[in-house]
């Protein structure tokens, strides 16, 4: 599963430093990461550099990864759970070329997992690091546009506004309608944005054995959750936090307790649900698990997404 590091063209010979960033920048980011770990959930400002791709494509996560990655690491990159989408493929190739590290799609084989908007279904282990790409690190931004005010609210732990916004959901819809970027309290002190992961993944952040790092490139913030740290999703006593549920199982691998994506199959209302974590689903199918859909539907799905599922 693990792909060896490319040997052909050395990045160092090509004129780049190891892992793209210069050493001075890495040291600055490393000092910020240490402070972020010391104050879990607090957003540490850092001198974000321009990366060779636009803001919004994971520049923050890439700078964090570039500052921590070494030759002993194995990297996995996912985008919405999938290893084979454009963003994931490109970032994985970027580090395979600039840091010459082996890459993998298997969560258990990776020492660093960089992710956009999902936490892998396989549980993370002690010693692993998960790096989140963060578009908007400030959980209060939608409620309070002024940075100065948000900073004060964090300083004085003044988070009533967020509770009011969740309450307004209940008053209007009868339940908390926020389904992603669901706000969490870290170590009972800082309100933190878990990044746009579905709230389905929030419980995985709580008491997680792996170190969680968050990098926001455009907003130039780094924050962290150390291993075994309490991460609590905000809720009310009479409206406790709950994750999404589906009436169907994964159509390909039959998994019952994973985050599912809806896939439209035709123009007559046909659809199927499949695991969002592509490696998890593939592994289950390799183990012989089968979903309810016929081989024909699996092939239709394969044709639709261009994936290779002939064994399914």
């Amino acid at each position: 599963m693990t792909r060896a590091a490319p040997q052909s063209e050395s990045v160092v010979e090509a004129g780049y430093n190891f892992a793209y960033l210069d050493e001075q920048t890495k040291r600055m980011i490393r000092r910020c990461i240490l402070k972020a770990v010391a104050v879990p959930g607090y957003q540490v400002p850092f001198g974000g550099r321009e990366m060779p791709l636009p803001y919004g494509w994971g520049t923050g996560g890439m700078q964090v990864t570039a500052s921590i990655i070494g030759r002993a690491d194995t990297l996995k990159v996912i985008d919405q759970g999938a290893d084979d989408t454009t963003n994931a493929v490109n970032i994985r190739r970027f580090f395979a070329r600039t840091a010459e590290v082996p890459t993998t799609e298997a969560t258990a084989e990776a020492s660093i997992v960089q992710t956009r908007h999902r936490v892998p279904e396989d549980p993370l282990a002690e010693g692993q690091i998960i790096v989140y790409q963060v578009p908007q690190p400030e959980p209060l931004r939608a409620l309070e546009p002024r940075e100065v005010e948000c900073r004060k609210m964090h300083a004085y732990k003044e988070y009533g506004l967020m509770q009011v916004s969740l309450y307004e959901d209940i008053a209007r819809f009868g339940e908390i309608a926020t389904s992603y970027s669901y706000p969490v309290m870290v170590n009972d002190r800082y309100l933190m944005s878990p990044t746009p992961i579905p709230k389905f993944d929030n419980p995985k952040m709580d008491d997680c054995p792996a170190l969680q790092l968050f990098g926001a490139g455009r907003e130039k913030r780094i924050y962290a959750v150390p291993p075994y740290t309490r991460v609590k999703s905000l809720d009310f006593d009479d409206h406790p936090f709950a994750i999404q549920q589906w009436e169907e199982d994964c159509a390909l691998c039959g998994a019952e307790e994973t985050f599912l994506d809806e896939v439209i199959l035709d123009d007559k209302g046909g659809k199927m649900y499949v695991c969002s974590d592509s490696h998890f689903c593939e592994r289950r199918r390799a183990e012989g698990h089968r979903g309810r859909l016929s081989e024909g539907a699996a092939k239709a799905y394969a044709a639709a997404v261009g994936a290779d599922v002939e064994e399914a």
Binding site: L34, V37, P227
Partner: peptide, 19 residues
């Protein structure tokens, strides 16, 4: 080896701070 030694030591310091 300034690049790789400092990366290696940083990861040790990071894991010390995280645990």
């Amino acid at each position: 080896d300034p690049v790789h030694d400092s990366q290696r030591f940083f990861r040790k310091l990071l894991s010390a701070m995280a645990q």
